[in-house]
Structure formats: C-alpha cells, structure tokens
C-alpha cells in the first residue's frame, strides 16, 4: 500500500478516488439543495424539514447528527488526501522539467491548465461557504440557527453573494470538466469503445450539477421564491443587526 502511494500512478489513482468521493457528495448536496425550490411552505420550509431529517437520520439507533458528522469526517479526509496527493505530484512533475522551459501549449484545454488554480480557489470558497451557512459566522445578512430557508433567502437577496456563488460554480464546472473524465482515465476505467461516451457523460454530469446548484441562488435572487414566514428572522431583519 505504501509502495502504491509512492508511485506516481498509485498516488494519482488515490487522488482520483478521493475526487470521486467529493463529486459523489456534490451530487447529494445539489439534490438536497433543490429542497429549497419548494418555497417557504405552509408550516415549515421543505429545506428546513430536510435539514432536520438529515440530523435525525437513524435515530434512535444512531445519536443525533451522527450521519452528518460521518459525512463531514469522510469529506475532510478525502479533501486532505486529495490535496496532499496533488501537492506531491505537482512537485514531482515540476522537477521533471527544466523550470525555464515550459512546455508549449499545443492542444491542452484551459480547464486542464487551470486545475491547480481552480482547486486552490475552491478551497477558499469552501472555507467561506462553511463560515456562512454552517457555522453562521458571517453576519452581513441575518443568519439564525435552524432557519436554513430564511438564511438562504436573505443571503441571496444580495447581488454580491449571488455573484460569489455563481463564480464558485464556474470554478467547480471547470475543475470537474477535466477532473471527472480524468478520473476514468487515471483509474483505467476507460475503454477505447466508450471513451467518447465517458467524455460526454462527464460533461453532461458537470452541466447538470452546476445548473442544479445555480438554480437555488438564482431563484431566491429573482424573487421566484417567497420570503420566509418565520417571525424571528423578520424581526431580526427589521431591527438591530444580528
């Protein structure tokens, strides 16, 4: 196993597998987000119900919030391994070529060249995203615990939050357009007969993913979705800054 990690191919395959875990999470995250599109609801917003359901999952067999924490630990592990592998590979790759003679671009895609840049920016975005909607530490718009729908609604009334999230989605799209197809190639799951399908399928997955993620902030910003009904947040908005 150590030998496998030491070899360039083995390390890249670990990077591919951890990448696949992260993409798998993104798909679930995107589907979960779409619960917001059901609006504030009569009694409770569907996305709030979904958030509670995630935390209550498995009760009473599992403790409260267990599944959420398992997912968080797995994701953190995957991201750390992904980054460690890439940093080591990039170092190796740079040592293999004289620094003052970069390879001329013949046909490589913008996405593939930008992988390191988009990846780095995405780490910054993930930190920001967690601070905003998980730890609720960014108080530009009113944020209240347990009020997912309201938090989203007020955040995406602001054009700059919409812009940040759409920009992040462009980064994700670029990173995954090269990354998802690359994963099949790196793991050797490709096959000359289905390579075209894998490439197009990867692009289609990325388009669906980005469109699904973009839908929620855009729907909030364009007022297609109604304001939340929770009184607590409304007083917070009209009153003193939280």
């Amino acid at each position: 196993m150590i030998e496998y990690w030491r070899s360039t191919i083995g390390k890249k395959q670990v990077v591919a597998i951890t990448g696949a875990i992260l993409v798998g999470y993104l798909i679930l995250h995107m589907l979960g987000n779409l619960n917001s599109a059901f609006g504030p609801g009569a009694d409770e917003a569907r996305v709030d119900w979904y958030a509670h359901w995630l935390r209550d999952f498995g009760e009473p067999l599992l403790p409260h919030g267990f599944v959420v924490w398992v997912v968080r630990v797995v994701l953190l592990g995957a991201i750390i391994t992904h980054i460690t592998g890439i940093v080591q590979l990039v170092k190796r790759n740079r040592e293999a070529r004289p620094a003052n003679f970069p390879a001329r671009r013949i046909g490589r895609s913008v996405e593939s060249i930008a992988m390191l840049g988009t990846g780095t920016l995405l780490i910054a975005f993930i930190v920001f995203h967690i601070l905003q909607f998980t730890t609720l530490s960014i108080h530009v718009t009113p944020v209240e615990p347990e009020e997912v729908y309201a938090n989203l609604y007020y955040a995406f009334q602001e054009w700059y939050f919409l812009a940040i999230y759409l920009a992040a989605l462009i980064l994700i799209g670029m990173h995954l357009r090269h990354g998802v197809w690359s994963m099949f190639q790196t793991l050797g799951l490709d096959n000359p007969n289905r390579n075209a399908k894998l490439r197009h399928g990867s692009t289609a997955l990325v388009v669906v993913l980005v469109a699904g993620f973009a839908a929620v902030p855009v729907l909030f910003f364009t007022d297609v979705l109604d304001p939340p009904k929770t009184t607590a947040v409304i007083t917070a908005l009209s009153g003193v800054p939280v």
């Binding site: 191919i9 083995g10 790759n93 040592e95 046909g107 050797g188």
Partner: peptide, 30 residues
Amino acid sequence: GGCTNYGECSRVCPQEISIDVIGMLNREYR
C-alpha cells in the same frame, strides 16, 4: 513526472499513439 491527462503527448506522437494506452497502463498497474 506523472500524467495529468493533458494529451499533449499524443498530439506530437509521430506514430499517433492514442492516450488509450495510458488508460491501459493505469488499469494494468492498478
């Protein structure tokens, strides 16, 4: 270095070898 699937190798290969062989190498190694 290692492969990052740029595909530049195949674009200069005078024998036009496809990067399918890299997929094969990855598969065989795994």
